[in-house]
Write a protein that binds this DNA or RNA. Sequence first.
DNA 1: AAGTGTGAAGCTATTCACAGCC
DNA 2: GGCTGTGAATAGCTTCACACTT
Lengths: 209, 209
Amino acid sequence: VRRLSLYLRGLEELEREGVRTVASEALAARAGTTAAQVRKDLSLFGSFGKRGLGYAVPPLQAQLRSILGLARPRRVALLGAGRIGAALFEYPPFRERGFRIVAIFDEDPEKIGRRWGGVAIRPVDELADTVRREEVEIAVLAIPAQAAQRMADMLAAAGIRGILNFAPVQIQVPETVVVNDVDMSVELEALTFALESAPADARASGTAG
Amino acid sequence: VRRLSLYLRGLEELEREGVRTVASEALAARAGTTAAQVRKDLSLFGSFGKRGLGYAVPPLQAQLRSILGLARPRRVALLGAGRIGAALFEYPPFRERGFRIVAIFDEDPEKIGRRWGGVAIRPVDELADTVRREEVEIAVLAIPAQAAQRMADMLAAAGIRGILNFAPVQIQVPETVVVNDVDMSVELEALTFALESAPADARASGTAG
DNA sequence: AAGTGTGAAGCTATTCACAGCC
DNA sequence: GGCTGTGAATAGCTTCACACTT
């Protein structure tokens, strides 16, 4: 599934380079996978290519955006105005893909009331109201582990639909909420595992899973 | 593989709670998986449990640390002293697991010469020397996409063994280098995909893959 | 009784190979 | 001739079920 997102990125690069049409082989190289994989993945959602030619870049881009649910902008709340929150708030790929951070929350009274690029940092007790008023669909959890479950409960109660969780803890949510975890120390440890267990035959790129 | 890392975290939590012994069932709950999965995963590396009792927390922790290559501290270089770099530099789970950031690099002359908690921000042309002198094993790439391949080439030439890549681009490295990609916008798009394709039966936690 | 370790079964994902279209 | 779409084959991963140990 997340390969689709890599294909979309590859197509954006190709478009910037002025390429109009692309073969599965070339797209696979950009996404770090194989031509057969690209074709299988895409054919799962429809027939987008032309035999003998390849895929037309702009239409396939539009298709992928639609499949990935990026056809319309998404309203996002950021929880946690610390360093990770700051990094995510300014992260260009988010806004390029249509994610709009419309609300920021923090528990630190020092931070509450400040503004980041026109968005006020609010106290957590305004969460439910703000989520509803601003029609927030997605929350990004950039807070310490011990606060994560509490915030997840409030978000679920406020009717959020998805959570991108950067907190290094497993959160429990009702079935109505989709969670995706991004765990940076797990990723770093996957790397040391690969270093430890394959110091000789270490194969490149993405093998650290 | 990255479940091992989640088990380790669960064991650390359990130790803080004073628990001495744990069943696969309970550990699975913390890691968001099943008891059978925990037993399979662990049995792949040895027999760590006692039938009828479960796993002894501290020894299993030590075993997992060793399997994950965390037995000794790892010397890390941070490339990119921007917002993402700042977030990662201060990220407590990294230092808790024995990752030591011993060098920081950036291309911005404004930033070069500054210090973050005693570590100087250096220009990129000092990279090879510093990596060797400081015996850096791992690099964290927290830089824009267009600079990533260039930095990866320099790191590979300097003899780095692993790269944790936060840049939203696929980098090419020689076989001697292991790369692990962390792509935040891919993760966010995996979430919107799940929202789009399963608005009704959305199952919780980790389903967004 | 409680709970691991593990073969076997079941399932999902990837790769192969090639017919069919441009 | 080049390249997609896709069944078939393969590989990898997860769940099941239960013998066996404490």
